[in-house]
């Protein structure tokens, strides 16, 4: 069950995005991080050190916890990027194994 819900407001405009290949709707003007939370995701990546799950923390661009892959480019700050129609978002899971 999602941790956040949307307020019921009039005149909401939606854009279609993909999260891990699944099509979902985000609100026009949402940050990618907000769209992930609204879609019910509880974590957006794993720590590259321990592999522990992490999620957006500050939402204002200072904690760098909300890093995800956006349109093929990894490690982007999802709280600082606005959703666009057709955007491909991927969580960054399992990278820990890649490091020595």
């Amino acid at each position: 069950m999602p941790v956040f819900r949307r307020l019921e407001e009039a005149d909401i405009r939606w854009v279609e995005i993909q999260i891990d290949g699944q099509t979902t709707q985000a609100r026009e003007g949402d940050s990618v991080a907000a769209a992930l939370l609204a879609a019910g995701l509880r974590s957006c990546r794993t720590s590259p050190i321990s592999g522990a799950p992490r999620a957006p923390f500050c939402m204002m661009g200072v904690c760098y916890e909300c890093l995800v892959e956006v349109d093929g480019i990894p490690n982007r700050q999802s709280c600082q990027i606005t959703v666009q129609e057709g955007m491909q978002i991927r969580r960054q899971i399992g990278t820990a194994k890649g490091y020595r």
Partner: peptide, 12 residues
């Protein structure tokens, strides 16, 4: 910020 920018509030 989630409230101001996206109209998101805690659900549970």
């Amino acid at each position: 910020i989630l409230l101001k920018s996206s109209g998101l509030v805690p659900a549970q």
